[in-house]
Amino acid sequence: MTVSSKPKLNRRLFVTGAAALAAGATALPAVAMEGSTEILPGASSSVRNNASSFRMLDWQQYFDNTRNGAILVDLTSRALHFWSEDQSVYRLYPTSVPLSEDLTRRGRTEVIQKVVAPPWRPTASMKARNPEWPDLVPGGAPDNPLGTHALYLSWTYYRIHGTHDTRKIGRRSSNGCVGLYNEHIQELFDLTKVGTQVLLI
Rank of each mutant, 00 (worst) to 15 (best):
R78F: 02
P94Q: 02
T66N: 11
Y93G: 11
R91T: 01
W83F: 06
Q87L: 13
V89S: 07
R67P: 15
S84F: 01
S96L: 04
W83M: 09
L99N: 14
D86E: 04
W59F: 06
L92S: 00
A79C: 12
L72C: 05
L99F: 12
S100Y: 14
F82I: 00
F82N: 01
R78L: 09
L99S: 10
L75Y: 06
T66H: 04
I71E: 06
P94W: 02
P98F: 12
L99K: 15
Y93N: 15
L72N: 00
S84R: 04
T95V: 14
G69M: 08
W59Q: 08
Q60F: 06
P94F: 07
Q87P: 11
L75M: 04
D74R: 03
V89W: 07
S88K: 10
D64A: 10
S96I: 06
A70I: 13
R78K: 14
Q87H: 12
L99W: 10
A79T: 03
Q61K: 13
N65Q: 14
S77W: 06
T76P: 10
F63G: 05
Q87A: 06
S96D: 10
D86H: 07
R78D: 12
D86S: 03
T76Q: 05
W59Y: 11
V73R: 01
L75N: 05
F63R: 00
T95C: 13
L72V: 02
D102L: 10
D102P: 08
L92V: 04
D86M: 02
D102Y: 12
I71L: 13
T76H: 14
Y90T: 14
Y62R: 05
R91P: 00
L99M: 11
D102M: 13
Y90S: 03
W59A: 07
Q87I: 09
S84D: 01
I71K: 08
Q60W: 13
W59M: 03
R91F: 09
R67H: 15
S77G: 14
S96K: 02
D74C: 07
D86P: 11
D64V: 09
R78C: 05
L80N: 04
T95M: 02
T104V: 09
Y90M: 10
T66W: 00
W83R: 03
N65G: 09
T104G: 15
P98A: 07
R67Q: 12
W59G: 01
R91G: 05
T104K: 14
Y93H: 11
T95Q: 05
P94T: 02
E101Y: 14
V89H: 10
D102S: 15
A70D: 13
V97G: 11
T104L: 07
H81T: 01
L92I: 10
Q61R: 15
L75E: 09
V97A: 13
L75W: 06
Q61G: 14
Q60R: 08
S77M: 13
T104N: 11
S96V: 00
L80F: 08
R78S: 02
D86N: 12
L75H: 05
L103S: 15
D102C: 08
L72S: 02
I71D: 04
S88C: 13
V89N: 03
L92F: 01
S100P: 15
A70K: 12
L80G: 08
F82A: 00
S84M: 00
S100L: 10
E85R: 02
R78E: 06
T104F: 08
E85T: 01
T95H: 10
L72W: 01
V89T: 08
D64C: 13
